[in-house]
């Protein structure tokens, strides 16, 4: 396997041999009479990146927050590593979301603690799982700042003093420091200008590959999923209208909405 990011080869080599990390079946969440998302089913395998695209209001963020445990779905089942997430005790679920899972928010201010330094932001998850040695925590924070291309001498600065792109990279470092296996990302490149986006995408692609992360990434930007995602799910009005390998879906869209979505991308 020379090019692990190529979806077809990846899928053929992984599937069948390994059990899925995340299994979702018949997931539904409604807000009163309105449908948030409904009848969503998919399997996510270790090391696989799943993109979820769709226009605003298509239910992709609802789906993500149900998966990450921020909201409780009305119906359906979520299995993580064979365990039923929805039947889990809250202690256990929150422990998972501190250790094995990570959540990258669209707005870094939602995911960062703005009142404390960058080092403390990265160290928080370590301290939450019991790290009690200041020197070690600081060394790991320094290491992670380096990995997301933030200068080590900014470790004691507050995130408010960082640019938008740096804040987003800091948020990623803060989430990945406990070496999670499953990462949820909600529009991680939203609100960043294109050159900063490109750097961030490059960084994320490297981290995903090096750490073997499984990722569920929600975005409306087709270029992002083209770069990162192995598989793609297209949502409209709370339903999955098409899913498949990313290149396949983008190059040969079958559903009318997907065709519209692909053709709506501006060409430079």
């Amino acid at each position: 396997m020379t090019q692990p990011q190529k979806a077809t080869e990846f899928s053929q080599s992984i599937r069948g041999a390994v059990a899925p990390l995340l299994q979702v079946a018949g997931l539904a969440k409604s807000y009163g009479a309105r449908i948030g998302c409904t009848d969503v089913s998919f399997d996510l395998f270790p090391g696989e990146v799943l993109g979820i695209v769709g226009e605003s209001g298509s239910g992709k963020s609802t789906l993500l927050s149900c998966l990450a445990g921020h909201q409780r779905p009305d119906q359906g089942q979520i299995l993580y590593d064979g365990q039923d997430v929805l039947a889990m005790a809250e202690t256990e679920r929150r422990r998972l979301s501190r250790t094995d899972w990570a959540f990258v928010h669209q707005n870094p201010r939602d995911g960062l603690r703005m009142g404390v330094s960058a080092g403390a932001n990265v160290g928080e998850r370590l301290m939450a799982i019991g790290a009690r040695h200041y020197g070690d925590i600081r060394a790991q924070a320094t290491d992670w700042l380096g990995r997301v291309e933030i200068d080590a001498n900014r470790i004691d600065d507050r995130p408010a003093a960082f640019s938008g792109g740096m804040q987003q990279r800091l948020q990623i470092a803060r989430n990945l420091v406990t070496a999670p296996r499953l990462v949820f990302m909600d529009e991680p490149t939203g609100g960043l200008d294109v050159s900063v986006q490109a750097r961030l995408l490059d960084l994320m692609r490297g981290l995903v590959r090096d750490m073997g992360l499984s990722v569920v990434i929600v975005t409306h930007d087709l270029a992002v999923v083209r770069l990162l995602a192995h598989r793609l799910m297209v949502m409209k009005s709370g339903r999955v209208v098409e899913q498949g390998l990313t290149d396949q879906v983008l190059d040969d869209p079958q559903h009318a909405y997907t065709q519209l979505l692909v053709s709506s991308v501006l060409q430079v």
Partner: peptide
């Protein structure tokens, strides 16, 4: 863990 974030800071 948050209590230690304060002490770290």
């Amino acid at each position: 863990g948050l209590m230690h974030v304060k002490l770290y800071e």
